[in-house]
Design a binder for these strands. Sequence first.
RNA 1: GUGGGCGUAGCUCAGUUGGUUAGAGCGUCUGGUUGUGGCCCAGAAGGUCAUGGGUUCAAAUCCCAUCGUUCACCCCA
Length: 420
Amino acid sequence: MIKAIRGTKDILPSEISRWHYLENIIKQIFSNFNYKEIRTPVFEETTLFGRSIGEETDIVSKEMYTFKDKGDTSITLKPEMTAGVVRAFIEHSLGGQQPLIKLYYISPMFRQERPQAGRLRQFHQFGGEALGSSSPVLDAELIQISYDILKSLGLKDLTVKINSLGVPESREDYKKLLREFLLNKKDKLSEDSRKRFDTNILRIFDSKIESDQELLKGAPLLIDNLDGESENHFEVVKEYLDKISIPFEIDPKLVRGLDYYTKTTFEIISKKVGSQSALVGGGRYDLLAEQLGGKPTPAVGFASGMERILLACESENSFSVKDDNIDVYIVRIDEELEMFVSETASKLRRSGLKADYDYLKRSVKAQMREANKSNAKFVLFIGGEEYKNKMANLKNMETGEQRSVQLDKLDTVLINSLKR
RNA sequence: GUGGGCGUAGCUCAGUUGGUUAGAGCGUCUGGUUGUGGCCCAGAAGGUCAUGGGUUCAAAUCCCAUCGUUCACCCCA
């Protein structure tokens, strides 16, 4: 048997209504904030990701689906969306058409990692990006959008964490401080953290190993060593979050794994999804557009994992969607009326009604069971004496009430009955 | 890439210290008297016990390998 590739999942008809529900909320809230949807290709030139996310990051160095196409170009399935959005922004000079552009997306992403709860190789993210303004209000706005979406889904157990990474210059100064602080403790660090000491020292804060955290006690914090501008920016973000009633925690250890972040970073976590607890991650990336060859364009954005969100919703039992139902199921009483039943269904469908019937020549009883399973509001019986007089029996499945209707007035009768 | 758990019907799972024909619930199908659902009742279909090898008179059960899956680490959404 051929099975779906490891780390990929079929979304079956039985679960699709939960996805539609989620997608509708996402579209609704982004639209309230006047964000426009953007769709970029699922694959891009490989170099785009190295240059934006960072060559040394885990995503680029070991998780990308990269292959050569027939023209010998190196292609990569997108592991995240920001790079593609910024590429499109530059390519189509979107910044030249309007000074600030607010975009959102819903799209599959691909990363070749070992699958686990809340982590797939093909997974789905939605996210928002605001390009063209350095206003801290936008940082807060994106936090608000993601938070409001999660809240609209009924999620309760959420924590918003924010931090500021400052600008590269102040960050470099700080790294020196941290390096000095840790220098004589280096040999006591875990193996991973010793590696981080050289590659990305900030990430040592992420370590889950207790002895590492012990060694970090009393370490200088990035947040206490910000440059003046970043500090002011962070103050406004916090102030505005307070004004719009978003509860948050400052987490000086929140260091995100993508190279392009500057100033604000944030995360929303839920304890209800296993160990992959981040539902949302994002931050400001003021230098990325320029780095990719565009004009300097301050920007901020976030991404959010839809599978993780649905896991959280499931474990909190935060919303339920009602079963699909149809308006009318047509039961064929006499076998020779098969064609007429199809014809009648087809007319009703063209009148905008949800109609179905049996294609398997099943018994009347079986047809009724089927009607019941598809939650039909009405059942129409076609056959016998009534049919000769161009009449049919219409049964209300909820009340059990049944009446005779003229076949040529069927659609109006049904439409009126359904209004009630 | 590293480590642990688990692979029995479409799904969720039983299966005793190895012992005849591998079970249940749900789901599916057919019936329960002429042309009417849910509830109930009767019956049926559906299994290379993941795959391959080994131990044994005898393996779903014990051992090994492979594959799959799952959870965790790293990292991330």
